[in-house]
Design a binder for these strands. Structure first.
Length: 310
DNA sequence: ATTGTCGCCTGAGTGC
DNA sequence: TGCACTCAGGCGACAA
């Protein structure tokens, strides 16, 4: 599934391949894929037609393309996307697209004047947890750029309640550490809470905690500042390494997102590796149920805290 | 206000 | 072969 590094790879690709393109037409093949939008699919299409895509920005796993009109002015709205579990944004030309009618094509934007020459921006999503919408841009409270790749101090309204992610240059780490320590919950819950910091999913949370040698149920209000820093640093490292690997395979007309970047097969220490040897100490990896999901830990490197919070 | 739970959705995998 | 069931999980909606 697309995690933050994959979404960043997509953002970078969109920035280069479709910035400046004009939306000539919009086809919505699945209404559910444009939910959370005023006016439904028809309103979505109406608000996009004739607009120019002015760049690509990202916060956590949300990404957006600010919409500009013919006359240059600060964009007031953006095409907002979340890829969910299985979403892809594919920049394609008709020859390729015609040969390959994707069974999970949900939305197609017809483009004019894309720098790549591409004619389509396709939203493909098997499991439909992802969605597109057009959203108003609102100013950031701190006046800093809204996210990675954003020159504007604004974010789409549905993103406003979400914390800056760990790759965001405008993130204040010390403030984040204190926010985490003020919470009365377990460290993994805090990592997964989008309002604290965004973009950390189940996989990277487990990997980061393993690196930092902290159990997922460790109570945040018992953690010292250095330990919280260690966890956040580990999460940043894991995502940065994945970004470096994921950015290597990139076709000029094909922005691909799937769960198959080399990172997932090669570099996971504990996630999904029940019973396999911990890369550090060879103890078999353990799986616990947590938040109706799974948590993978090394029982030796990450001993269970006495007063943990699950 | 903060914290925790539920359910959306589809296809692969499993057991009978 | 086919059917019923489970599982994966980000995150908004809602409850406590």
């Amino acid at each position: 599934m697309p995690e933050l590094p994959e979404v960043e790879t997509v953002r970078d690709g969109l920035d280069r391949l479709v910035t400046g393109a004009v939306v000539r037409d919009v086809e919505v093949f699945r209404d559910y894929s444009v939910r959370r939008h005023d006016g439904g699919p028809a309103g979505f299409a109406d608000q996009l037609r004739g607009r120019r895509l002015a760049g690509a920005a990202r916060r956590g796993k949300y990404l957006w393309l600010p919409l500009a009109d013919a006359a240059p002015a600060d964009p007031a709205a953006a095409l907002l996307a979340h890829l969910g579990m299985s979403g892809q944004l594919l920049v394609r030309d008709p020859a390729v697209a015609g040969e390959w009618a994707h069974p999970h094509l949900r939305v197609r934007l017809h483009l004019l004047d894309a720098p790549s020459g591409a004619h389509y921006l396709d939203f493909v999503d098997q499991r439909t947890f992802g969605h597109l919408s057009v959203a108003d841009l609102v100013p950031t409270p701190d006046g800093a750029p809204g996210g990675f790749g954003s020159p504007l101090a604004a974010v789409p309204e549905p993103v406003a309640h979400i914390g800056r992610d760990l790759l965001d240059p405008a993130l204040d780490r010390d403030v984040l550490v204190e926010r985490v320590r003020r919470r009365r919950t377990g460290i993994k819950r805090a990592l997964l809470d989008q309002t604290v910091t965004s973009g950390v999913g189940n996989i990277y949370a487990d990997e980061a905690l393993w690196r930092a040698r902290v159990h997922f149920a460790r109570a945040t209000d018992t953690m010292t500042r250095p330990v919280v820093h260690r966890v956040l640093d580990a999460a940043t490292e894991v995502m940065t390494e994945a970004l470096v690997q994921g950015g290597t395979s990139f076709d000029a007309l094909y922005v691909n997102v799937n769960g198959e970047s080399g990172y997932f097969s090669r570099s996971l220490a504990v996630y999904g590796r029940l019973g396999e040897a911990c890369p550090r100490c060879a103890t078999p990896v353990r799986r616990d149920e947590f938040m109706n999901r799974s948590s993978f830990t090394c029982p030796r490197c990450q001993p269970r805290p006495r007063n943990g919070r699950w």
